[in-house]
């Protein structure tokens, strides 16, 4: 799914209106894996929420395959994974994964069936437990498994690996790329981890501090799997780091 934003801004209304995004323009072709990286509070989650139709687009435009987010969500073409695990405490691990399919009525054609999704994230042996019995990282993996069952062509992933240790992160990154490559879904992947962005994405977008706008757009034209020793990989890491430095100091490229 193609994603196009044209001077997209968003302000939260409250006692004091708060400008979270300012004039974001970008174009993401179908099938691209894009990492969004930027300082905390810069509007990354806000951007994903706009694309998931959880916030209304009031200023500028945001189109998914030429349609407003509402239409794409109604066609079940968008999968959103929240920054918090958002699990139902009264459902078992397995029932939590199955829930998405029950709501969207996937019937016999989920992208990935529940058992398979749980196996991919390494939670098969916990299928009968309840979320309260899981650690923070396990809860996040459960939320990831649930997202992977959705038959969507746009994945909006809000820091899906934030609560994971480095080894689990690497293993899951491999699983995820294996799932993603044949599907060719468009991915927006929010992360604070430069190496995660460099290892996974085709492109990294660096956001400035709030109000967020794009300060650096870094292509990552490297074949997968990527090796940290590769000098090209190192130069990608350096560019992202430089971009983040500009984001911190507020200098725009």
């Amino acid at each position: 799914m193609r994603l196009e934003a044209e001077s997209l801004s968003h302000s939260y209304s409250g006692k004091q209106p708060l400008e979270a995004l300012r004039r974001v323009s970008l174009s993401i072709p179908a099938g691209q894996f894009v990492a969004l990286i930027g300082p905390s509070g810069c509007g990354k989650s806000t951007f994903l929420r706009l694309a998931a139709n959880l916030l209304p687009v009031r200023s500028g435009s945001l189109l998914l395959d030429g349609q407003p987010p509402r239409a794409a969500v109604a066609q079940q073409r968008v999968a959103w994974m929240a920054q918090s695990p958002a699990l139902l405490p009264w459902r078992t691990v397995r029932a939590n994964v199955l829930l998405a399919g029950q709501i969207q009525n996937h019937g016999s054609r989920p992208r990935l069936d529940a058992e398979e999704a749980l196996a991919r994230v390494g939670l098969s042996d916990m299928a009968g437990s309840y979320p309260a019995e899981l650690s923070g990282g396990m809860q996040q993996r459960l939320a990831l498994a649930r997202t992977l069952t959705l038959p969507a062509s746009l994945w909006l992933m809000d820091e899906p690996f934030a609560a994971l240790d480095e080894l689990t992160r690497e293993r899951l990154a491999g699983e995820l790329l294996g799932l993603w490559q044949p599907i060719g879904a468009t991915v927006l992947w929010v992360t604070h981890n430069i190496h995660e962005a460099a290892r996974l994405a085709d492109r990294a977008l660096v956001f400035s501090q709030r109000p967020g706008s794009i300060v650096a757009d870094i292509p990552i034209p490297l074949a997968r799997p990527r090796r940290e020793a590769d000098p090209d990989y190192q130069s990608v890491v350096t560019s992202i780091r430089t971009g983040l430095g500009m984001a911190e100091t507020g200098v725009s490229s």
Binding site: L54, Q76, A82
Partner: peptide, 17 residues
């Protein structure tokens, strides 16, 4: 939990669901 309501809405769940 508002996060759960958001989740259901991202699935395009109906009011009844």
């Amino acid at each position: 939990d508002p996060a759960l309501v958001d989740l259901f809405q991202s699935w395009n769940a109906s009011r009844w669901q």
